[in-house]
Design a binder for these strands. Structure first.
Lengths: 224, 224
DNA sequence: AATAGTGTACTTGTATACAAGTTAGCAAAA
DNA sequence: TTTTGCTAACTTGTATACAAGTACACTATT
């Protein structure tokens, strides 16, 4: 059973840890949609009081993974359709961010992105799946942060944990498909860098569209 | 001093009430950006324990109005730029929703929207500012809900309280500008209905663009 | 006077206690 | 058999208690 990487939990409170573990299991289906969970039971499972559990459930509710009700919280899960929608929103956010980056000096960002791609290749060589998924995630997050739009960054924040967790799961699958698939993934990121280089909003729009259209395909073949 | 309408708080927990009141005062500037607030002090002000305050602060942090730190939460507030960005995001979300509605049968929605517009005129006649702002809000929310995209609705959920509160404040200003301004606002909503009627994505895109471009102008002239 | 050390008051994170409300099941009555 | 009413075990919302960590001012020392 996949566990949430403990190195991603440094300095995290109990509430954060419970949220991360719960999130992972809701997304990977260990906790099934329709199930009803209560603060007390979750607290018992994790051996804590209700306080951190309460925070975790609030967080998961904010992310749309569960729905808080009068009695108990019902698990919503992430269906295939939900994943599609998640990528719709990722596209919306990243597309906005990249369009914005076309209008400013983005040299330093591009350098950073290229370094990340180098590290991706290293992670492939070391067969370090966790590092790879983290790099994939950080690549896109760097773009969004560099766009310097507080509200957009906030939208991102509301889905970032889900995206990170989904990437963790899908990367596991991609790794099992061998080096060819991985170099395709890396190449897609190179295309994004090339797109940003042009600083042409039309080129960028197409690049981002291609990226996410392709990602959706990978996503579906990976999860079914 | 403007208070959060108590009729919007039916069945709300203490946490919700504190969040709403705090949100209003952060947005209207009664609580200034840069200020540091602590759970204890807020609890003392509202005469409650820290528990509901804690929830309220978490909610406000999720909305980006404050930033939680080791010691105390620092108020971020909503600058003019933040408001611009808020409307960027509103445009992004509603534009997506309306594009989606072009492809489906939206007759029932249109009927509902027209009824809302009628009620707006009634609210003007009765000089009921709170009802008007609520109708304006519900009009746009109805569009987003009807798009039936869970992730998009979630993005909306993460800003809806801020939008509602901003509308409450700006509507107060619009009302003070007299009937002519109000009928302009109502007319803008009629244009949206007309746009949706065409079911033409290009027409709709332009209508929504116009709507929010114009709203931004109103917003700025209203708050400075 | 400047600085190092220390204590105090404040902060959050977590645990626990209690109150009020909801649900489900069972028993008793029609 | 059906329905009504009650009980008992759950649920969340809120209050309170405690622990660990942080900032800041004050004091003693150089």
């Amino acid at each position: 059973m996949l566990h949430y990487p403990s190195e991603w939990l440094h300095g995290a409170s109990l509430g954060d840890r419970i949220a991360s573990e719960l999130r992972l299991h809701v997304i990977d289906g260990t906790i099934k949609a329709g199930e009803v969970i209560s603060e007390n039971r979750v607290a018992a499972v994790f051996g804590t009081s209700r306080s951190p559990v309460r925070e975790a459930l609030k967080a998961l509710a904010n992310e749309g993974l569960i729905r808080l009700e009068r009695m108990g919280a019902v698990v919503l899960g992430l269906s295939d359709e939900d994943l599609d929608e998640l990528y719709d929103v990722r596209f919306l956010i990243e597309s906005f961010a990249q369009q914005r980056l076309a209008a400013v000096d983005n040299g330093k960002l591009l350098e950073k992105l290229r370094q990340m791609i180098d590290k991706m290749e290293l992670a492939v060589k070391h067969e370090d799946m966790i590092a790879f998924s983290n790099l994939d995630f950080s690549f896109h997050e760097a773009i969004i942060i560099e766009a310097k739009h507080a509200r957009i960054q906030h939208l991102w924040k509301s889905i970032r944990q889900i995206v990170l967790t989904v990437m963790l799961i899908t990367t596991e699958e991609v790794f099992s498909q061998g080096a060819a698939k991985l170099s395709m993934v890396i190449d897609k990121h190179r295309k994004i860098v090339s797109g940003l280089e042009t600083k042409d909003v039309n080129v960028i729009r197409n690049v981002v569209q291609d990226y996410f259209a392709d990602s959706k395909v990978t996503l579906h073949s990976s999860l079914s």
